[in-house]
Simulated assay, not measured.
Amino acid sequence: MTQANSSNRAPRPEWDHYSGILRTFVMWNALLAFVVEVAMLVFVGWWALTLDLPWWGRILVAAGAVGALIALWGSFAAPKARFKVATPAVVAVKVVAFASGAVALWGLGFGVAALVYAVVAALNLTVTTYVRRDRKRR
């Protein structure tokens, strides 16, 4: 029996590189990343649905804004992104996306929640970027 080519295997999750309490921390951070990403889409969609437009206009804006964020994220920021770009570019895309979620929440009148969301997203992005760093450069 032959072994599968290593390039065909799925990449290991970032927590596989850690053990003990640090592994648990990285796993919880990955879960938090998912929650922050979904919240971003919900906040932008919610904001669009409150615009002073006819109902069909609000639906179109919400679908377009959320769709644009999904396309941007899937193209550049997702772990299996369509286009591989340097880490600073990935971070920039994520900052823009998370900022749109915070601005949308602010626009809904939830200023404190927007600031809390922005801080949590920034901390999560910092940890995620660190644990996914290129390990060959150590």
Results as ranks from 00 to 15, higher is better:
L72T: 13
S6H: 08
P88C: 09
V85I: 15
L22D: 10
V119S: 09
V38L: 13
R9A: 09
R12S: 12
W47T: 03
R138C: 05
L53H: 00
A71F: 15
Y117H: 06
L108D: 03
G57S: 01
A77Y: 01
W73S: 00
G107M: 00
A48E: 00
Y117P: 03
A102D: 06
V119D: 01
W47K: 12
L72K: 03
L51S: 02
A68I: 07
T128R: 12
G57Y: 01
V44H: 02
S75C: 10
I59K: 01
D52S: 13
E37K: 05
R12K: 15
M40G: 05
K136S: 15
L49Q: 09
W46C: 01
W73A: 06
R82I: 12
R23K: 15
W55G: 00
V119I: 12
G64C: 04
V96P: 09
R58G: 03
G45K: 07
I70D: 07
D16G: 09
V26M: 04
R23W: 11
A30G: 13
W106N: 13
A121D: 07
W55L: 03
L69V: 08
T129C: 03
A99E: 12
W106H: 09
A63M: 08
K80Y: 06
F25Q: 06
A102V: 06
V66S: 02
I70P: 08
A81E: 02
L125W: 03
V66Q: 00
F110D: 13
G64A: 08
V36Q: 01
L125N: 11
K136L: 12
S19Q: 12
A118V: 02
W106T: 03
L31Q: 08
V120P: 06
P54K: 07
P88S: 01
R133N: 09
S19E: 11
V131F: 07
R82F: 11
L72Y: 08
A102T: 03
L69I: 14
V36P: 00
I21N: 10
T126F: 11
G111S: 14
D52K: 07
K136C: 06
H17F: 09
R138L: 15
L31H: 11
R135P: 05
M40S: 11
F34W: 14
Y18H: 10
Y18S: 08
A30I: 00
G111W: 09
Q3G: 09
P11G: 01
W15H: 09
F98T: 12
I21V: 11
R137V: 13
V116S: 05
I59D: 01
P79I: 05
R135T: 13
A89G: 09
A104Y: 04
V93F: 08
A89K: 14
D134K: 02
V90N: 00
H17N: 15
Q3S: 13
N29G: 04
V127A: 03
V90E: 11
R133C: 07
D134Y: 00
L60G: 11
S6A: 15
F98Y: 13
G45C: 08
A89T: 15
L22S: 14
G74S: 02
G109L: 04
P13M: 10
S6K: 10
W28A: 14
G67L: 11
I59L: 14
G20N: 02
R23C: 13
E14K: 08
G57P: 05
A89N: 10
A77R: 03
M27K: 12
V119A: 13
D52R: 09
A33K: 01
L115E: 02
R82M: 08
